[in-house]
Structure formats: structure tokens, C-alpha cells
């Protein structure tokens, strides 16, 4: 097994002290170390936002792209070289707001990659506006009288769109979170790990104590079966006094790469020779 320190980047995170994203970064480093994936074989792709700065803080290849566009870049990179371990990271605004269209379609594609969303239910980097997962009636900088819209439900959305591994963690429980991430990375298919990652500066409601009082682990219930889609959907809507974390759902389905004709040889696109087309035959077809 590799050492966690091998995955520590040159730059120290610039997150606020106490930010939930530290726990997410540590858990990811631990998961990669336990899986013993060499840093040069990992590509972490992010969008824009506090949490999207993560690729700068982890020792692996990174692509810090546009706001909301981490998933298409990550998809293109995975399809281009499926030998890489591709992990997309970002926040709730990035992934469930501006980028939700890509989220929906990435779920149904089942490309073998992991998507970690640091969900703090607020826009942090832009100093505290309501996000897609801000609960109804919560006052924020952009909703001084409370939000009017309902909060988006990432777990239910991922389930309904066909994601094959759907989990939720809490950055107040790093060991548990690391195990969920490990399972996600090992899973053959598109895996979502939505993480309660408290914003200590702008979200005074959904704090560490708030979550600690409420979260419970699905795996503690012997009866819970993550292969049961209906049950997963039911649990996805549990919110309030008790909020489930853990693995909601896992199913094996052929990945996009499995069914893509250009990858039948098993050789990544990026490693295939460039001169493959029989140009004379193509020319003949024009006649």
C-alpha cells in the first residue's frame, strides 16, 4: 500500500480553517493510497469554486477547468485514456447548478469514473448566496427573506438518471468517507459521492453539529440492501431529524467504454497509432 503523503500536493489548501473540504481531500488521499494507484495514473478534474481548487492540493495530474464543466472534461479524458483513474471534484453550485445538465447525462452514460461533490449547500467562493441544495426558506446573502425554491436532491437525481454507484458521506467522518470513495473508485461505472462538507464561513445552519445530530449510516441497518433501487430511492428522500449517509445504491452495468466500438481493442485512444484510416478506401467511396 502506498503512503498517504505520496498524494499530498506542493501547495497547502487555501480553504478557511475548519472547512469541510479538508476532510474530503484527506479522505481522497487515503482512498488512493489504500488502492495503491500511482499519482501519475490519476487525473483529478474540477470546475470552479472553493472545492474545485482541490486538484491543486493533491499530488496527481489535475485539470482545473471551467465552472460547471468538470464532468465533460473528465468524460473526454476518460474516453481518451481509460487506463487513467479519473476523478471529478467540485461543489454543489458547480455540479448541481450551472453544471447539472452534464451531471444528468453523465449519470446515464455510465463512464467509469468517480464524481465527488463537496456539498455545503451554499455558494462559498462568491461569499454566501443560495445554492441548488440550500434548503427552502433559508436566508442567504441572495435570499434575505428565505429561499423560495425547493432544494435539489442529488442522491435521488443520480439514482433516477442511472448512476450505478450512489453514496453520500460526511466530512466529519473521514474514515467512513474514505471507504465510500474507495468503493466509488473501484466501482466499474459512474460513481457519485455526495459529501456533506460544511462551510464554516457562510453556512451557519448546516454545521458539523447539525449534521452530527442527524446523520446515521445505512450500513448500520442490517436490513438495508444497496442493490434495492426502490429502497435507495426511499432513503434518498429521508431528510430532517435523521439523514442517511453511506452507500445508497450499487449496480453492475456495462460501462460506456465496454460498449464503445473504438475501444474494443482495449487500447486507450491516446495510445492508438494515428495513421489508422485506409485513406485510399475512403477516397474510393467518394467516387
Amino acid at each position: 500500500m502506498a503512503q498517504v503523503k505520496e498524494y499530498i500536493g506542493k501547495i497547502k489548501p487555501d480553504w478557511c480553517p475548519g472547512c469541510g473540504d479538508f476532510g474530503v481531500l484527506n479522505s481522497l488521499q487515503r482512498a488512493l493510497a489504500e488502492l495503491d494507484i500511482a499519482p501519475h495514473n490519476v487525473l483529478v478534474v474540477s470546475g470552479i469554486g472553493c472545492s474545485s481548487n482541490l486538484p491543486g492540493f493533491i499530488h496527481s495530474y489535475g485539470f482545473h477547468g471551467l465552472h460547471g464543466r468538470s464532468l465533460p472534461v473528465a468524460s473526454g479524458a476518460k474516453l481518451g485514456n481509460h487506463a487513467l483513474t479519473v476523478i471529478a471534484t467540485g461543489g454543489d453550485g458547480d455540479g448541481y447548478g450551472i453544471g447539472v445538465g452534464h451531471f444528468v447525462h453523465t449519470c446515464r452514460r455510465n463512464i467509469d469514473m468517480t464524481y465527488i461533490v463537496m456539498d455545503n449547500q451554499i455558494y462559498g467562493l462568491t461569499t454566501g448566496q443560495a445554492s441548488p441544495t440550500t434548503e427552502k426558506d433559508v436566508r442567504t446573502k441572495s435570499t434575505p427573506e428565505g429561499t423560495i425554491e425547493l432544494a435539489l436532491n442529488p442522491v435521488a437525481l443520480a439514482l433516477s438518471c442511472g448512476a450505478t454507484y450512489v453514496a453520500r458521506g460526511f466530512s466529519g467522518d473521514n474514515l467512513h468517507l474514505a471507504q465510500l470513495m474507495k468503493g466509488a473508485i473501484e466501482h466499474k461505472g459512474f460513481a457519485l459521492v455526495d459529501v456533506f462538507s460544511p462551510c464554516v464561513t457562510y453556512n451557519k445552519r448546516n454545521t458539523y453539529p447539525w449534521f452530527r445530530e442527524r446523520v446515521y449510516k445505512l450500513e448500520d441497518d442490517q436490513q438495508y440492501d444497496p442493490a434495492d433501487f426502490r429502497l435507495a430511492m426511499e432513503k434518498a428522500f429521508e431528510w430532517g431529524a435523521r439523514i442517511p449517509i453511506g452507500l445508497f445504491y450499487k449496480v453492475e452495468r456495462p460501462t460506456y467504454e465496454d460498449e464503445e466500438p473504438a475501444l474494443r481493442s482495449g487500447i486507450p485512444l491516446a495510445k492508438q497509432p494515428l495513421e489508422r484510416a485506409d485513406l485510399a478506401a475512403l477516397m474510393e467511396d467518394f467516387i
Binding site: L43, S75, A77
Partner: peptide, 13 residues
């Protein structure tokens, strides 16, 4: 948006 970002992802690798 996805089309160009995907092409960028593929080109990046």
C-alpha cells in the same frame, strides 16, 4: 458546451 469540453478532455490526455 459539453461537446467542446469533452474534446478538450480527450485532447488533454
Amino acid at each position: 458546451i459539453s461537446a467542446l469540453n469533452m474534446a478538450i478532455g480527450a485532447a488533454h490526455v
